[in-house]
Amino acid sequence: MYLSIKGIEKSFPHKERGTVKVLDKIDLEVEKGQFVSIVGPSGCGKSTMLYLIAGLEKADQGTISINGKTVTGSGSDRVVVFQEAGLFPWLTVLDNVTYGLLLKKIPKKEAEQKAIEMLKMVHLGNYIHSYPHQLSGGMKQRVSIARALVMEPDILLMDEPFAALDEQTRMVLHKELLDIWRKTKVTIFFITHNIREAVLLSQKIVVFATRPGKIKAVFTSKDSKDGVVPSDVTLQLEKQILAELQDEIEKVLKEEMGDDYSFKTNSVSRDTSGDMGSHI
C-alpha cells in the first residue's frame, strides 16, 4: 500500500482531565493516486491526523509509512494546504509561491516561471507582485493552493481548503483540483465538513467518529466525476454518509447542549447542500 497508517494513537494534554485521547487506533490504507476525503464532526481529530501524516506532529503509538518508508518528520513530498491561507505577510504573492521551490534548490528563474504559471491557473496572474493583505480571503486561499501545487508533492494534504470560499470560486477550484489530480496523479488526502464536496470529489470517503477519533465507516465511490453536478449515485452516497454522521453529531450536540437534545431525523432533505458539519 502506498500510504499506510497503522494503529495511530494520539493524546493531548488537557487542563482539567490530564490528557485527552484525540485519535484511537486509526488504521487506514491509501493507494497511490487515490483521492481520499475525511469527514467527521468538529474536534474529532481530522486535522491532527493530517498533521501526523505531514510530520508536523508526532504520534504516541503506531506508524505512518509512505512507500514503505516510515514518516519521521515533515518533508516537501507531503505538502499541506491549511484551512487558513497562512501566507507570509512579508513576502509578495510570487515570493510566497516560490518559497518552497527555492528550498528544493530550483533555480530562481525557473521557480518564478513555474510559480507564475501556477498563479495563472488559479486566476491570479495579475496579482503576482501584490502583498497578501491586498488580496481577499478567497484569493489568499488560491495563492496557498498554488503554493502547495507548485511543489508537485507526492501527497497533497488539504485541511478544509475551500471552507472559506464562496460557492462560485469553490466550484471552479473543485474542477481545477480534479483536473490537476488527473494530470499529476497526486495522492490527495482531503478533509472537509461538506459531505457533498467529499462525494463529488473523492474515490474513498472516511467517516470519523468522535471522542476519541476513530474510523467509523469507509465508503468508496465511482471514479469518473466532474466535481460539480450531483447524480443519483452521489446523492445516495450522501444519504448513507449522513446517516453515519448523525450519530456522531448527536453525540457532540448532547455533550454541548445537554442530554435531552435530539437531532436525529430520518430525512436527509432538510439539508440540501449536504453541508452538515458546518452547523456543528
Binding site: 505531514a54 515533515s74 516537501s76 499541506v80 491549511f82 507570509f88 518552497g100 528550498l103
Partner: peptide, 14 residues
C-alpha cells in the same frame, strides 16, 4: 503564529 511555522515546515524548511 504556529500557522506560519507549520506552513514553512510543510514546504521543507528547517
Amino acid at each position: 503564529p504556529i500557522l506560519y511555522q507549520r506552513v514553512a515546515k510543510s514546504l521543507g524548511s528547517s
